[in-house]
Design a protein around this nucleic acid. Structure first.
Length: 370
DNA sequence: TCTGGGGTCCTCGTGCGG
DNA sequence: TCTGCCGCACGAGGACCC
């Protein structure tokens, strides 16, 4: 699956036309599964899925062997096992993934100072001004492989969007260097779904406008997109299809909320039992808030009925809270006021509006949905 | 098929104060 | 004093990401 650098889209010169910036996106291949295979090498070559074991659990990551059977992330585990009955199911070990992620991020920062962690298994690096950005990223990939045994895919381009799409294009073990124009040409015939920020709902709405491919979207009328998606998201979508993106690599992103939620293996009915089920969520959330030194002014709850209809309720206070007594009391009040009318599938508690978290000015090309 | 958990941030509606 | 306008904060829902 791995291809030599010469066969890839890497330009002969590392310079890209109209280039102000050089951004890399690095993504660890099948991260959770790969960590598990480090610990249990006897599973190498087998279809492995990392997933909970409950009746409503879903696949978090599948090995490439399991993916051949059609198993994918976010798929119900029961379905994954129907597709691939011989798959080995490994329960997730969040602490181990966090540790490994920290090691990888340190390795990246060793070679590139400007790094934004974008999840446990991916990061953006600002390589602007480096004489040999491609060589630097090759050293990063090499070090990650030697130090951790993990494989990574890298995309490099003039902005985050090109870098991200490029790194996704040739996984696993990909290394792709594209200019904005090359990205437009390479992905012109791809579905709009390829673009980060275009999910199933947006694709559906685009298709109603007869927009199917990245190229269709890049040539669509701004007026038509604005009529459908509004004055911000419409032009933003077209800019995505043109691979325009000026979002900076942010090294200092701070959390703005923290939450705990759980999906019950059997739906729960009645306010008394729900309140009982809420207590451990509040406890766990407040412990985490304390550990991270967070407190926030808004306390919220989340209720999901069995038909997936989801409701949230929130209350903003005049001061920040993080203690179990207050968060628990307000969450209970919100639950009492909401009075769920049907059996509940999921219950969640959230504290938001962290003290010190500044609301950043909205940028034209920042991701509208997060 | 039957949909986790933990996040971010957008849109839209509403209430309120200047 | 009343009304309309505007900006802001909040609340709810939703889309999306890993």
């Amino acid at each position: 699956m791995s291809t030599s650098a010469e066969e890839r889209d890497e330009p002969k010169s590392p310079r890209i036309e109209n280039l102000d910036r050089t951004i890399a996106h690095l993504d660890l291949d099948a991260f959770f599964v790969s960590v598990e295979l480090q610990r249990r090498p006897e599973l190498k070559g087998l279809p492995v899925i990392v997933s909970g074991t409950g009746p409503r659990s879903v696949v978090t990551t599948a090995s490439y062997e399991a993916r051949k059977f059609g198993v994918g992330s976010a798929m119900p585990t029961a379905k994954a096992l129907r597709l691939c009955p011989e798959a080995v199911v490994v329960p997730p070990d969040g602490a181990a993934y966090k540790r490994m992620s920290g090691t990888v991020m340190d390795l990246i920062r060793h070679h590139v100072p400007q790094v934004e962690q974008a999840g446990l298994d991916e990061a953006y690096a600002d390589l602007t001004g480096m004489l040999a950005p491609s060589a630097a990223m090759r050293r990063v990939v090499h070090d990650i492989r030697v130090e951790t045994g993990l494989h990574a895919s890298v995309g490099i381009g003039p902005n985050r969007l090109v870098a991200k799409v490029a790194s996704d294009a040739e996984k696993p073990d990909g290394f792709v260097f594209l200019s904005q124009e090359q990205a437009r040409m390479k992905f012109a015939d791809s579905s709009t779904r390829l673009l980060p920020g275009v999910g199933p709902k947006t694709r559906e709405r685009l298709e109603r406008l007869q927009i199917y491919t990245v190229d269709d979207l890049s040539e669509a009328s701004v007026q038509e997109l604005t009529d459908e998606f509004g004055g911000r998201q419409g032009p933003w979508l077209r800019a995505r299809a043109r691979f325009e993106d000026d979002t900076p690599v942010q090294t200092d992103r701070e959390a703005v909320s923290e939450s705990r939620e759980t999906t019950f293996s059997v739906d729960v009915e009645g306010i008394a039992e729900l309140r009982e089920r809420m207590a451990p969520l509040v406890l766990e959330l407040c412990k985490a808030l304390e550990t991270h030194g967070h407190s926030g002014r808004t306390v919220g709850i989340k209720i999901r009925y069995s038909d997936f209809e989801t409701h949230t309720r929130a209350r903003t206070l005049d001061h920040s809270v993080s203690d179990r007594a207050t968060v628990g009391r307000i969450a209970s009040q919100l639950l009492d006021e909401f009075q769920p009318s049907r059996p509940v599938r999921l219950l969640g508690v959230r504290v938001a509006g962290f003290t010190g978290a500044t609301s950043k000015p909205r940028e034209q090309l920042s991701l509208p949905f997060g």
